[in-house]
């Protein structure tokens, strides 16, 4: 299994998806960093505030969780999975002495690793917004400690909220040769999510959990006995199971 994962990881080298993870992870932090540098005069005063870390953490996640992360996952999962279709390499993969389940899981592990890589880069970017000016000695490093518990909790929730998107995009990208299908369906559900967030059954939309987690308005759902944390995990399990069945029983291995 480990060799299959290494092999799958090598395929992502210099790929569009790997660039997307790095650029997508740094995009919003760099905009905020630029904004901070533009208002240099207030930087020292802001760095002294106790809530400086939480402020930028929430600011960055606001754009990331609702808009960029779902789009990024839709694109990245499709690009990674479609590497085989695009290069006409499925037939070579399927004539190697690997079990189908190993191939399936190795690809999924690589996708999830890239998701974790993105979270690390993004959180690193948030740290840079606040810390970079201090590194160059222009302002003091914030005296307030980084609220690691809060950050960890939010990251954990966002990670779980991302999983249904990963699951469904993986299913679609494995099943359809045409890149436009997973992309089109993904974008359609994304738009439906934005429209459906105010709908009373909006929590049924599998791509909605990132927004719910960010808005932190899940109490009314909990009161009804609906735990969206488990909904997200459930959707991921169902989509991944369907992806496996679709892959396992595909008539032709291309």
């Amino acid at each position: 299994m480990i060799h299959s994962i290494q092999s799958e990881w090598l395929k992502t080298r210099r790929s569009l998806a790997s660039w997307l993870v790095v650029i997508g992870g740094l995009f919003i932090p760099l905009i905020f960093l630029y904004d901070r540098l533009r208002h240099f005069s207030t930087m020292a005063e802001n760095n002294a505030k106790p809530g400086i870390w939480t402020y930028y953490f929430k600011q960055c996640w606001q754009y990331m969780s609702i808009l960029l992360l779902p789009l990024g996952i839709i694109l990245t999962v499709s690009l990674i999975t479609q590497i085989e279709y695009r290069n006409n390499t499925w037939k070579q993969v399927h004539t190697t002495p690997q079990r189908l389940s190993t191939i399936f899981l190795a690809k999924l592990v690589v996708i999830l690793t890239m998701l974790l890589q993105f979270f690390l880069i993004f959180n690193g970017g948030i740290w840079l917004i606040v810390a970079l000016p201090s590194v160059f000695g222009t302002v003091d490093y914030p005296s307030a400690p980084i609220p690691l518990d809060t950050f960890g909790e939010f990251n954990h929730r966002f990670l779980v909220g991302s999983l249904p998107i990963v699951g469904l995009q993986y299913l679609l990208s494995l099943h359809f040769r045409n890149f436009m299908v997973p992309l089109g369906v993904g974008l359609a559900i994304f738009v439906a999510t934005i429209i459906g967030l105010n709908w009373e059954y909006g929590y049924l939309i599998p791509y909605s959990y990132l927004s719910y987690f960010f808005m932190n308005n899940t109490q009314h759902l909990l009161d009804q006995g609906i735990n969206i944390y488990y909904c997200a995990l459930g959707y991921f399990a169902v989509f991944t199971g369907l992806a496996w069945l679709s892959y396992r029983y595909q008539r032709s291995k291309n």
Partner: peptide
């Protein structure tokens, strides 16, 4: 046709 990863 040969199965090659064109970006590598």
């Amino acid at each position: 046709s040969p199965s090659l990863y064109s970006h590598l």
